[in-house]
Design a protein around this nucleic acid. Structure first.
Lengths: 206, 206
DNA sequence: TCTTAGTGGGACATTAGTGTCCCAAAAAGC
DNA sequence: GCTTTTTGGGACACTAATGTCCCACTAAGA
């Protein structure tokens, strides 16, 4: 007599990820971010197909759509958090830190587009204030302003918005194949630093 | 005996928009852009409700979802085209033209978010190359580079991407109430001109 | 090799969204 | 005022998407 039904073993947290299961879960989450980034109305069947997984397998891992989306969001945020971790943005000059950050985030590609491309998802993120990733970014911005590296007159919240928007643009262009990733990253950094104007007479700011 | 069924009169193009019908159509298109900008999975019922219109009325104007979306996209593009027209971006110094353009577009708000926020919609726009709006924007960028106002080393396509991204950010913040519209527009222009760095030591490009 | 975990796919039931039709009532236009 | 247009809502059929279950098959691991 079998006591446990087939399918992924969810009881307890003892085994975090057993080989096969881990890989399947990965594949599904990756596919979800990729597919949903491009089409918010994609069906579960679309996602399963992209993950090269049966639709029933997908349901085995994520009982319903909401759970899948939540998990994919969480996973994507984790990816970004790790990219941010590796960029060590609390170290060195703020300008350099920002460069590392932008480069790292452009590399996060689809996941960025997925999470921030959909206002609906975006709005119901675990309170912005509480998100450690966001805190770190804001901290960097404020540090940069204090150091005199970033525009002191601009609202930090605005700068954060700009940062995400430009990184998003870079990630999107890279994902779309408009330009190779490293070029996109370089452009992002360059634009962050000087806008789109020529070196000399650019900022005739009021 | 009545020969014409109730509902909007679509025969011929004689009468472009009879008062009531025009207003209803407007309301639906506005609501569609607004609602879809915030939630791509919104249902027709959601849109009808936002437009303060019965679901059957909505169907009367737009037989199916695809037609509604197409019409809403077209309408939004028309709005932007008009904003662009009013900005007269082919006149005066490129820098000034860009300021006018950015300001005008931030004002387009939801419509911008609607059209450019969804890669799925965005990708199936009438060939980018053929879109006159886009041509004008690219022309402005190239003119700006020729005039020495815009960064001559940056790819015009990249600059266009940046322009849309920052305008989008401004529009979103205004729509979300984070800051009043005119502040958002000012921030957009300022960032376009000088990035996020302080005036003096900013662009230590590479 | 043998056992077990994990999978794919088919066959459903259920639901949510879509699209159609009709009719009484409200609004617009005269 | 009266006529015509337009509307909202209900009832409906239809479809796509979701979620559940089962079973045979395969890959992984002892």
């Amino acid at each position: 007599m079998r006591t446990t039904p087939p399918g992924p073993d969810t009881r307890g947290d003892a085994r975090p990820e057993s080989g096969t299961r881990g890989r399947t879960r990965r594949a599904i989450l990756d596919a979800a971010a990729e597919v949903l980034a491009r089409n918010r109305r994609a069906t579960l069947a679309d996602i399963a197909q992209a993950a090269e997984v049966g639709r029933s397998t997908l349901h085995r891992y994520f009982p319903d759509r909401d759970e899948l989306v939540s998990a994919a969001v969480e996973d994507s945020l984790a990816h970004m958090a790790q990219a941010l971790e590796e960029a060590a943005i609390d170290q060195g000059p703020a300008l350099d830190a920002m460069r590392r950050l932008a480069t790292a985030l452009v590399g996060a590609g689809d996941r960025l587009v997925f999470v921030f491309g959909d206002p609906h998802i975006f709005e119901q993120l675990p309170d912005e204030e509480d998100d450690p990733t966001d805190r770190q970014v804001l901290a960097l911005i404020e540090r940069g302003q204090a150091e005199g590296a970033f525009d002191p007159e601009a609202d930090p919240v605005w700068i954060r918005g700009v940062l995400w928007a430009l990184v998003y643009t870079g990630a999107e262009m890279a994902a779309r194949g408009t330009m190779p990733r490293h070029v996109a990253a370089a452009n992002t950094v360059r634009t962050l630093e000087r806008g789109i104007c020529a070196a000399g007479g650019g900022g005739t700011a009021q």
